[in-house]
C-alpha cells in the first residue's frame, strides 16, 4: 500500500467524533467521549493525561490496532475504521511505526533481525532489506551492535533498536506509548533527542504518549486528555502544568521529574 498523493495541508491524522466503549459485564464504560483531533503532516505531538484517561486507547485507534465504537479514523487519506483485519495488518506494516515502553524486542533475534522483521512482510529483496536495516541502525547509532541480542543491550540501546524497527518501513506516522517510561532521565533525554532528530531528518509525524513532563515539554504541540476527552491543545508549550507543582517553566520540567522520582 503506497501513500496516496495528498495535498500537504491535509492532516495526516483525522479522528472524527470517535467514541470508545468497553462493556464490563452489564455496565458499559465510556473510555473515549467524542474525540475530535487533527494532526498535521510532519508535526511532533505529545499526549499527556492522568492514568486511565484513555491515552493508550486513543493511540490504538490512530494506529489501527483497535476500532472506535462510533466515529471515523482517517490516516494519510485512508479510512482505517472501515478496513478488515487483514487489510489493517498490511496497512499497519506500511503506514505506522510503533515504539513501546518496554521495547518489546524479540529476545531470540539479533538487533539486525528485530529491525528486519517488518520488512519481511513487504515484498522486498534480501539485499534491499539489508541495506535498509543497516541504514536505519546506523541512524540510531547502533551500527556496531548488529548481532547483539536484546539481552546483551542496555535499556537505551534496546529502545534505539525499537525506534529503528518502527522507522525501517519508512512509515508516515510513528506512535510511541511512553517510550521513555522504562528509562532513567538521562537516557530519556537521549531517546528524545534521537526522536526529534529523526523527525526532522526523515520528516516523520510523531505522536508520543507520556507521563514525563520533561518529554512533554519538548514537543511542538501538546494535547491533554482527561476522562476520555481532549481538554487542552497547546502549540509550542512553554510551560507544562503539573497537578502537584502547578504551572512550571519548561526548563524546570526536568527538575520536577527528578523531584517526582525522589518522592516515590
Amino acid at each position: 500500500m503506497s501513500t496516496p498523493p495528498l495535498r500537504s495541508n491535509e492532516p495526516i491524522v483525522l479522528v472524527d467524533g470517535c467514541t470508545k466503549n468497553y462493556s464490563r459485564g452489564s455496565e458499559t464504560v465510556s473510555v473515549l467521549k467524542s474525540v475530535h483531533l487533527e494532526i498535521a503532516r510532519g508535526d511532533f505531538v505529545g499526549l499527556i493525561g492522568p492514568s486511565g484517561s484513555g491515552k493508550t486507547t486513543l493511540l490504538n485507534l490512530i494506529a489501527g490496532l483497535d476500532q472506535p465504537t462510533t466515529g471515523r479514523v482517517v490516516i494519510n487519506g485512508v479510512e482505517i475504521s472501515s478496513l478488515t483485519e487483514a487489510q489493517l495488518a498490511l496497512w499497519r506494516t506500511n503506514a505506522i511505526g510503533f515504539v513501546f515502553q518496554f521495547f518489546n524486542l524479540i529476545p531470540v533475534l539479533t538487533a539486525f533481525e528485530n529491525v528486519e522483521l517488518p520488512l519481511l512482510l513487504l515484498n522486498m529483496s534480501r539485499r534491499r532489506r539489508r541495506e535498509q536495516v543497516l541504514n536505519i541502525l546506523e541512524l540510531v547509532g547502533l551500527g556496531h551492535r548488529l548481532t547483539h541480542r536484546p539481552g546483551q543491550l542496555s535499556g537505551g540501546e534496546q529502545q534505539r533498536v525499537g525506534i529503528a524497527r518502527a522507522l525501517v518501513t519508512d512509515p508516515a506516522l510513528v506512535v510511541a506509548d511512553e517510550p521513555t517510561g522504562d528509562l532513567d532521565s538521562r537516557k530519556s533525554q537521549e531517546i528524545l533527542d534521537l526522536l526529534q532528530e529523526l523527525q526532522v531528518r526523515l520528516n516523520k509525524t510523531i505522536l508520543i504518549v507520556t507521563h514525563d513532563l520533561a518529554v512533554a515539554a519538548r514537543v511542538r504541540r501538546l494535547l491533554r486528555i482527561s476522562d476520555g476527552q481532549l481538554i487542552d491543545d497547546t502549540e509550542n508549550p512553554e510551560s507544562v502544568t503539573h497537578p502537584l507543582f502547578g504551572s512550571l517553566n519548561v526548563s524546570n520540567a526536568a527538575r520536577v521529574k527528578r523531584a517526582e522520582a525522589a518522592r516515590s
Partner: peptide, 13 residues
C-alpha cells in the same frame, strides 16, 4: 505471549 503480540502489531497475520 508478548512476542506474539508484537509480531501481530507489526502486521504479521
Amino acid at each position: 505471549i508478548k512476542d506474539i503480540a508484537v509480531l501481530r502489531l507489526l502486521g504479521f497475520m
